[in-house]
Computed example of a mutant assay.
Amino acid sequence: MILQFIEDYPEDPRGNSCLVLGYLGPGRPLHAVCGMDPSGTLVIITVYFPEPPKWINERNRGKGD
Rank of each mutant, 00 (worst) to 15 (best):
G27C: 09
E51G: 08
T46D: 11
A32N: 00
E7S: 01
E11L: 08
N57M: 09
V20T: 07
N57S: 09
I44P: 05
F49C: 11
Q4T: 04
Y9L: 06
E7W: 04
D65E: 15
L24Y: 12
N57Y: 13
G64Q: 10
L21C: 00
P52M: 11
Y23A: 01
Y9R: 02
S39P: 07
P52I: 06
V20E: 03
V20C: 05
G64C: 06
I44S: 09
I45C: 00
M1F: 07
F49M: 12
D8Y: 09
W55Y: 15
K63W: 14
I45M: 04
D37S: 09
K63N: 15
P52A: 14
S39Y: 12
K54W: 06
G15E: 02
R59H: 11
D65G: 12
S39H: 13
R61K: 15
R61H: 14
H31V: 06
W55K: 03
Q4P: 01
K54C: 03
V47R: 02
L3H: 03
G62R: 08
E11K: 10
G22S: 12
R59M: 09
K63M: 12
E58C: 08
Y9C: 01
E58W: 02
P53W: 05
T46F: 10
L21W: 01
P52G: 08
Q4G: 02
R61P: 05
C18G: 09
N60I: 15
G27R: 04
G25E: 11
V47S: 04
R14A: 15
L24T: 13
L30D: 05
I45P: 02
E51C: 08
E7K: 03
Q4R: 03
S39I: 05
G35Q: 13
V33H: 06
V33F: 04
D37K: 08
I56W: 12
L21R: 00
E58K: 08
I56C: 04
Y9T: 01
L24A: 14
P53T: 07
P26D: 13
L24K: 14
Q4K: 05
D8R: 14
R14I: 03
D8V: 08
T46R: 12
T41G: 11
P52C: 07
S39C: 08
G25Q: 05
Y9N: 03
G27F: 10
G35W: 11
M36A: 10
E7N: 01
L3Y: 03
L24Q: 15
E58L: 04
D8S: 13
I44E: 12
P38W: 10
G35I: 05
